[in-house]
Design a protein around this nucleic acid. Sequence first.
DNA 1: GCAAAAGTGTTTCAGTTACACCCATGA
DNA 2: TCATGGGTGTAACTGAAACACTTTTGC
Lengths: 235, 235
Amino acid sequence: MKNKAAPHITVAIDCIVFGFDGSDLKLLLVKRGFNPEMNKWSLMGGFVNEDESVDDASTRILNKLTGLHGVYLEQLHTFGAVKRDTTERTISIAYFALIDIAKYKQQLSHDYHAEWFPIKNVPSLIFDHDAMVEEAKKRLQYKAALHPIVFELLPEKFTLPQIQSMYDAIYEVNFDKRNFSRKLLSTGLLIKLNEKDKAGSKKGAFYYMLDKEKYNENLYKIFSLIITPDHLQFL
Amino acid sequence: MKNKAAPHITVAIDCIVFGFDGSDLKLLLVKRGFNPEMNKWSLMGGFVNEDESVDDASTRILNKLTGLHGVYLEQLHTFGAVKRDTTERTISIAYFALIDIAKYKQQLSHDYHAEWFPIKNVPSLIFDHDAMVEEAKKRLQYKAALHPIVFELLPEKFTLPQIQSMYDAIYEVNFDKRNFSRKLLSTGLLIKLNEKDKAGSKKGAFYYMLDKEKYNENLYKIFSLIITPDHLQFL
DNA sequence: GCAAAAGTGTTTCAGTTACACCCATGA
DNA sequence: TCATGGGTGTAACTGAAACACTTTTGC
């Protein structure tokens, strides 16, 4: 029962940072600069201080890596196997973040040897970080099926082909572009701009932007946009 | 960065235990037997030991309260505000459990002054336990919409009216019984028995049981049984 | 003029909802 | 015999899926 002996344990944060660059979904990793497991790839992590909440700790640690403020960050799961960290008993609270890679690029933090890896081609990571990434991918699928959080991954202006390739990457499928665009536009969340992105094709694709007001109205609502049961298997 | 100073923090577990008794959804609470907040209602909690995983700790703590083994238990969220515990900086990993009240009754643990409260009528709890319960209710709605975990709440034999009142309680609505039973039976997960429960009515309601094989086959599958978007709002 | 990607409509089908009456029984 | 809860069927509608051709333009 409580207030008997209360063991004290090291509590860490690890951040799974997803990014989208307009065509690929990527994961941000850092090269570990100290032992053990020096020079292996890992998630960005740090310890929870005694005078900060765990949410504050995750924000602080993510900011240290990316320099960004206001990033979408959500607690994922707490990993607490006894020997998950080989040096000392540590439990880790994993958070996942969604960011627009372009926004971040200017301030890429060389201090941490941070690098983006395509989600389909992530190296193996230290400790139980692989499991954290797997869990985060599932959560992203889960969450994005019901909530419009994916806009966190996009720049202010984006094209329909871009947003579709993002969904395709998240769910590892290819949606039918006719059904996809109809369904997406029917949410009324998008505003079509009079401007085209000519980078991806000769014809060019119209830019859209999020209708922020409607977005905020609908944030609490279900966004049953995409998913057929198959894509949610194993969640 | 890691392996600088690593503060050590007290790590607790709190269990949100949902139970169903055939007509009502309930929450199991204990009366706190020590200060501070002595005699107030709280979730069942305890500390994580240095030599056990957090999952093991949650199982141990739940077992201490209920005497039960093999209870459905799932990690919910880690609560880590600095002053959430008034005595000492403590982070708490909340777990939620689903149990069949009848199964548990025999071994009700008087040691902890444990008591079932109807979910609609839960007293206010210590620390941030109210928030934990709210979070758990949402998670249960979320999860039960897509996974057949609710059978964890039911005895081996149950009637359609019973299972429906469970869903009604979870989602705080009243489903149409014709649509409900059709949809439920169409999953093929239920076996109708040649036996009636005469407790609830004069006519009596047929017992059903879970087809365990199909259940296990389908555990990984989506169980898109019930939910219309409205019920998932705010998740 | 052709290659490459963008954009658009219709039909079919399945699943969901709404809805009302009869049945069995104990008191 | 009547009050109570259990059990069942149909019609209308809505949303999802499948599917192929035309448009634009840089080369």
